[in-house]
Amino acid sequence: MAAEDSFRDYVAARLVGLSRAAYLLTGDRHLAEDLVQQALVQVASRWEKISAGGDPDPYVRRVLYHQHVSWWRWRRLVDRPHADLPETAVADRGRDVDTELTVRQALRRLTPKQRAVLVLRYFEDLTEAQTAEVLGCSVGTVKSNTRDALARLRTTAPELADLREAR
C-alpha cells in the first residue's frame, strides 16, 4: 500500500504540469487526457522500480514523450479531429485569442518530434542535453529538430516574436 500511496501523492503533485505538457504536445484536450492516462498507467505498472531510483520525473517524462511520438499515437492524432477550445475559457481569462489560435495552429503543423522538442525546450525549460536524453536521441538531432521547428513557425506564424527570439 505504501507504493500505491506514494504513486497517488506523485500524481497529485505533478498532474497539472503533465496535463499542460500533454496539451501542448497533442493540441487537443481529450487527446491530452488520453496521453496522460496512458503514460500514468505505464508509470503505475513500474512504480516500485521508478520510485526506488529517486526522482520519477525523468522516467515519467520519457514515457509521456515517447507515447506521443510513437506511431500509434501519431496515427490517432492524425485520425481524430482536433477539438477547438471552448471560447468561454479563453474569454474568462481575457487573453489574446488571436495569438493563442495562431500558436495552436502553428504547433499542429509541426511533426510530433518537433513539437516535443519545442515543448521540452521552451515549456519545460530543459537543456538540449536533457531534451536529448528524454527523447532518446542525440543533441544534434535536438538541435536540428529545434531549428526546423522554429523555421516552420517563422513561416506559419511570423507574429510569434518570442519564439523566434528564443532561438
Partner: peptide
C-alpha cells in the same frame, strides 16, 4: 496556451 489545460 498550456495554462488553458485543466488537470486531466
Amino acid at each position: 496556451l498550456a495554462g488553458e489545460m485543466t488537470p486531466a
